[in-house]
Design a protein around this nucleic acid. Structure first.
Length: 500
RNA sequence: GGUCUCGUGGCCGAGUGGCUAGGCAGAGCUCUGCAAAAGCUCGUACAGCGGUUCGAAUCCGCUCGAGACCUCCA
């Protein structure tokens, strides 16, 4: 294992600065990421966020940290529209489809996991549900009432933002000031129970028809959205933890409210480093369910989306997303995916090559090559440690793949470098590709039978070529090509292939 | 209206005071039974206008353009 204590720098959205990462406890990282509300299919914008934090947690582990990664499932309490008239998203969907709310939750949770699996996004250490932490949320609400940061009206409990702001800074994350927030937007509704419209619900009274309900000190009700994350993050990671992540669009109000609740409860900031991933755009516009421009994963794999010419594999998309920085918007287009497909094919075939490549006893040492390979290996670490710069890391991997191809074609020999240099180079390439970036060889992993069959055909074709039976060898190649398998002849009869 | 972010070559995208990003596409060459792949070489760039500086794509100001958040969204 690398386990080198390479210093990591993180752009902290709380301060807006790139900061040296210092964990609360040496060698341990606690990270919380806001998961999905399971009321509909996840689209690729959602995937980008979970991919970002997948790579971040993978990298910490690669460096030898023990990571506790908590990513919740919001299965209750996420309201539509304003917190007062709003209807629970899951309950609404259940009513429309005439299903039990937990049926909806089950269906989309399973779908969510399937999608993440396809993209090789690893499971978090803990995946708690909001509905499984009602007791904790009631207790937090109670404490906030006792501390005077909340008030009860008609069986609902609201957080008193003005009161909080007198002691702490509401808006510290989203850089807003409370006066602007109070002035802007809709006027206070006469029906509104809240003292100020910026106040938010900790606990909501359930109307008689509301299905998802739990008994509490304030009558039957359900928890507010913001509270669940505070309840679950502090339960599993402590009152203050290292990293909190999520999509940019959750910064306000969700994360701002989390900070307010937690700070009101404990008197200290809950999170040391906030990381926000940026949006996936289509024609420059945010991909979102409400705009109706989302791409669903299966539309992408099959190419059935109207903006696509053809389907793209999950690994191509994973690679595509990692070519940009998580903090920049990324535009999704057919052309960009096409370029990504070819690029990915290149570094992934180099991966197959280096895996098979063995060290030979050193001959004459090529100092220039030796130090070049060492530089490339360490550049991977440097770039990933610089705010998880996957784009730069991939650029290094492309450079490395050129060297690998040199070895393959015999332009350079592995014996020109020391054994340590070679093994380190190999471990870096394989490690960064597979462990850190999660870019695995799709073909080999997905279809051993196919791979075996292709190898049989390759052997037959080799025989034909040796016999100078070119019509037969070309037929094998052409027929395979028609099926999407491209054969590539190498030096001394060696053969590679790629599958579309 | 308020708050904030961004504008890089044909396309996608890093970088952010002096040092080739990278990928895709394009041109030429090498290798090869042919093809493909690979290798080598090449071109085009930092929205505009001012300012700071020995030096700016990078810092500051303005202009233009795009987007996000302020209501649910990853």
């Amino acid at each position: 294992m690398q386990a080198k204590k390479h210093p990591i720098f993180i752009t902290n959205s709380l301060t807006g600065k790139k900061e040296l990462f210092k964990p609360l406890v040496d060698d341990y990282v606690g990270m919380y990421v806001c998961g999905p509300t399971v009321y509909s299919d996840v689209h690729l914008g959602n995937v980008r966020t979970f991919l970002t934090f997948d790579v971040i947690s993978r990298y910490f582990r690669y460096l030898g940290y023990k990571v506790r990664y908590v990513r919740n499932i919001t299965d209750v309490g996420h309201l539509e529209n304003d917190a007062d008239e709003g209807e629970d998203k899951i309950a609404k969907k259940a009513r429309l489809q005439q299903l039990e709310p937990m049926e909806i939750v089950q269906k989309y949770t399973v779908g969510f996991h399937e999608v993440l699996n396809q993209f090789n996004i690893l499971s978090p250490s803990i995946e708690p549900t909001a509905s499984g932490h009602i007791v904790e949320q009631i207790n937090l609400t109670k404490t906030l009432l006792e501390k005077g940061f909340a008030y009860e009206v008609n069986g609902s409990v609201y957080f008193d933002v003005k009161k909080y702001n007198g002691l702490h800074d509401y808006g510290i994350l989203s850089k807003r000031n409370i006066e602007d927030l109070m002035d802007s937007g809709r006027a206070l509704d006469s029906q509104d129970e809240k003292r100020e419209k910026i106040d938010f619900a900790l606990w909501k009274k359930a109307s008689p028809s509301h299905i998802m309900r739990w008994p509490s000190l304030w009558g039957d009700g359900f928890p507010g959205w913001h509270l669940e994350c505070t309840a679950m993050s502090t339960k599993y990671l402590g009152e203050t933890f290292d990293i909190h992540g999520g999509g940019m669009d959750l910064k306000f109000p969700h994360h701002e409210c989390e900070i307010a609740q937690a700070t009101a409860l404990t008197g200290k900031p809950p999170v040391n480093y906030w990381i926000h991933s940026n949006m996936l755009t289509v024609d420059g516009q945010k991909m979102s369910k409400s705009l109706g421009n989302s791409f669903l994963p299966h539309e992408l794999f099959t190419g059935t989306h109207k903006l696509l010419d053809k389907g793209y594999s999950p690994m191509t998309v994973r690679f595509f997303m990692l070519q940009s920085n998580y903090s920049s918007t990324l535009d999704f287009s057919n052309e960009a995916l096409q370029a990504a497909e070819k690029g990915f094919k290149r570094i992934s075939s180099a991966l197959a090559v280096i895996k098979k490549l063995k060290y030979e006893t050193a001959s004459s040492l090529n100092h220039e090559l030796d130090s070049d390979l060492n530089r490339l290996s360490s550049d991977c670490l440097t770039n990933m440690s610089d705010d998880f710069n996957t784009a730069k890391t991939l650029a290094v991997l492309f450079e490395m793949s050129s060297r690998i191809n040199d070895f393959k074609s015999g332009i350079k020999r592995v014996s020109e470098v020391t054994r340590d240099t070679f093994e380190n180079f190999k471990a870096s390439y394989v490690g960064f590709m597979e462990e850190v970036l999660g870019l695995t060889d799709e073909v080999e992993n997905n279809n051993k039978l196919l791979v075996g069959t292709i190898n049989v055909l390759i052997a037959l074709r080799k025989r034909a070529r040796e016999d100078k039976n070119f019509p037969l060898s070309d037929k094998i190649r052409d027929d395979l090509k028609a099926l999407g398998v491209q054969l590539m002849d190498g030096k001394d009869g060696e053969m590679n292939y790629s599958i579309d």
